[in-house]
Nucleic acid binder design. Structure first.
Length: 295
DNA sequence: GCCCAGGGCTATC
DNA sequence: GATAGCCATGGG
């Protein structure tokens, strides 16, 4: 990877096939907005308390990162974006993880190709947990709007610019201080008490993030997260995968249920993907959710 | 105007 | 342990 400073940002070459168009739009994070022109894509948003922008050409071999220094990119964003992981090897494993008996139509290979360029980000644990509590029985555009309102009202101003103001994701302390009634004004609906319960248990240590990270098994990590009211298997799996680096977590939502019912007549065992189960899940989700051919 | 959404809780069988 | 109804809201 080659990184050089330019005015207001950096130029990166050699990102190993990483594509911002797919990675920021595959349903794993909710605070980035995609825009684009004829032959490029931009993604602007907030993560890790920083306002940052990415611009990439269509083939993906030219990446520009704004509001970011070379040092910051190498020290923070390479990890966040999982650019240290060899996804060509990951995809190879996933494609070959099931035989024709399990995957008669070769959907794993199709999904891997369709989602080539996706990286599973290493997001902030609290933000991921809170975001996926909000996600339940909800749709992605609306989840993004609710989270944007949450940050505008309760986050800190972290950036002033011509295009507007950017806000950080609010801490659990701030949300507890506000309470469920005020949260309802943001139209989070029945999820308001769930968010408060999560914040309270994180603050008190009843739910221990270090215990989740250091859990000896995926099940132990999920059990810890499920102490929170409103957090079940699916939300816990998403938080584990996207916020705690548990790449073996395998969240099953309505899209994944459809994918499995449609393509895998005898079901699909996450264990067959080993530590890459979460990535396999994301590829199947993306293929089912965004591939018009199979809608 | 209707169905649905990156679900989970509760009651009931 | 499985299933049904409910939860609050608005995207498409």
């Amino acid at each position: 990877m080659f990184v050089e400073d330019i005015g207001g940002g950096i130029h990166v070459v050699g990102v190993g096939g990483f594509l911002i168009r797919k990675s920021f739009d595959c349903g794993q994070c909710f605070r980035f907005d995609l825009s684009g022109g004829a032959d490029f894509v931009e993604a602007w948003g907030v993560a890790l308390g920083r306002y940052i922008g990415f611009r990439q050409n269509e083939s993906g071999d030219e990446l520009f990162v704004y509001n970011c220094s070379a040092e910051e990119f190498l020290g923070i964003w390479v990890d966040y974006l999982s650019l240290d992981v060899d996804y060509s090897e990951v995809l190879r494993v996933i494609e070959n993880a099931a035989g024709a008996d399990v995957d008669p139509r070769g959907v794993l290979k199709l999904a891997a190709e369709f989602g080539r360029g996706i990286r599973i980000f290493r997001q902030d644990p609290w933000e991921a947990l809170c975001s996926f509590i909000i996600s339940q029985n909800n749709n992605i555009p609306r989840i993004k709007k609710i989270i944007a309102r949450l940050c505008e009202r309760y986050g800190d101003k972290i950036f002033y610019g011509d295009s507007g103001v950017a806000y950080s994701f609010p801490s659990p302390e701030r949300l507890v201080q506000k309470g469920a009634d005020e949260l309802r004004e943001l139209k989070v609906g029945f999820r308001a008490p769930y968010i408060i319960d999560a914040a309270e248990k994180v603050i008190s240590g009843e739910v221990d993030f270090n215990a989740v990270k250091g859990a000896g098994s995926l099940q132990a990590a999920i059990d810890e997260l499920c102490k929170i009211r409103g957090v079940g298997l699916k939300v816990a799996s998403c938080a584990a995968l996207f916020g705690f680096g548990r790449s073996d977590a395998f969240p099953i939502d309505v899209w994944m249920k459809r994918s499995i019912e449609r393509h895998f007549p005898h079901g699909l065992d996450p264990l067959s993907f080993g530590e890459y189960a979460g990535i396999a899940q994301q590829l199947l989700f993306y293929y089912e959710r965004y591939n018009e051919r199979y809608r």
